[in-house]
Design a protein around this nucleic acid. Structure first.
Lengths: 203, 203
DNA sequence: CCATAATGTAAGTAAGCACTTGCATGCATG
DNA sequence: CATGCATGCAAGTGCTTACTTACATTATGG
């Protein structure tokens, strides 16, 4: 039963996974190396052999997660004409991508005060998302299907705010508490309001 | 220099203030009673004499903050006609009220996993805000200035999401990082999009 | 089949932390 | 001025935690 050689690589990954999960739940300080080792089904000493210290393990977690730097969001999308339909899809897509990284997002946000260098990482995802939306609206303006009297970036930030709420509630509370009892496709209803506004068109 | 009698009440408040500030910054576990005492300019023993344990101090902080339960937001507002203008005001008002409690909000969110009973507190503010907005939109519908084919609550949640983003970024990053380099009145620009949509009215 | 690398086990160390105790000091009020 | 109350100070206790050391066990690859 002793010294089962998992191949080394596997062990490192299991430790990183366990660390991410626990630290994002309880915070860095409150997470013990013992707990991480247990969750990774690894002896505590092994943890220190792979990562010299708890802090270096923490930084290794950040490094690994930041690697997969959300390239998903980097693609440009051409407006097709049906804004509501398309923004619904883009929203669902981005939301899913971000929520998939919710643990990491929470971890970064919680420790940013203690490790200010994290700050640079945090902005990356939102900024990429906003940038993609901005380009989308720019093109939609050229096509004449979007008002030209509002800055594309303002539109992008506005639209992104809704996705951001989903990300935050999911990351910290485990669910989109505001919409969870709502019926229907929340994203589409939002997109519809965003595109058409709430003002009565009674003219 | 010894035993300066501050009146007792004052001391308790200073400790609670220091605890809120430090715990919201670093998290409960990472905040030491020594640090709290120092920040409150009080001997560590005094802290334990007023609050039996670190945990009870923490709960006392929550109790005190939850007392001022954002009655500010509880007032109903009658739509006047100019939706953009009014929503801008409401938004700024709510945003200011919530951001004023940003420390407390962050503290609750960070510790909700460890103290699930906090969960009940967290929902209060957003729900009150959403409820107020919902009533506002209901009345605006009666006046015929808002579309009747969209649920008021969906509108409310949509509008609230923007305020929520401001609250979260301020609480956790100290600033509204997404809008901080923007010029102009962000809240008004958002309200304008919300009311009129982004679709071109080229009919 | 042997050398090496990876892991496990047991035990321990040093530091930090929540919390306690005992005593001294000043303030306020009757 | 005397009593009580709030606070300060010094020292200490017991627990947890990050991290170490020494040695045993297993798997793998040449």
């Amino acid at each position: 039963m002793h010294g089962e050689n998992m191949g080394g690589k596997n062990t490192k990954i299991r430790i990183l996974d366990a660390a991410l999960e626990l630290i994002s739940k309880d915070g860095l300080k409150a997470t013990t190396t013992k707990a991480i080792a247990e969750k990774a089904s690894v002896n505590e000493v092994t943890l220190f052999r792979h990562f010299e210290s708890k802090e270096k393990l923490f930084l290794a977690v950040i490094d690994r997660e930041a690697m997969v730097r959300f390239e998903i969001i980097q693609h440009d999308i051409e407006p097709s004409g049906d804004l509501v339909e398309e923004l619904t899809m883009i929203g669902n897509f981005m939301s899913k991508a971000m929520v998939g990284k919710a643990n990491f997002f929470k971890l970064m946000v919680m420790e940013v005060n203690r490790y200010p260098e994290i700050f640079d990482h945090i902005g990356t995802v939102p900024m990429a998302a906003i940038d993609m939306l901005k380009k989308y609206f720019d093109k939609a303006k050229e096509m004449g299907i979007v008002r030209k009297d509002v800055h594309s970036e303002i539109m992008a930030i506005t639209y992104f705010s809704y996705l951001f709420r989903i990300l935050v509630t999911t990351a910290f509370l485990g669910d989109d508490i505001f919409m969870k009892n709502r019926t229907g496709d929340g994203m589409r209803q939002f997109a519809e309001i965003f595109v058409n506004g709430v003002a009565s068109r009674g003219d």
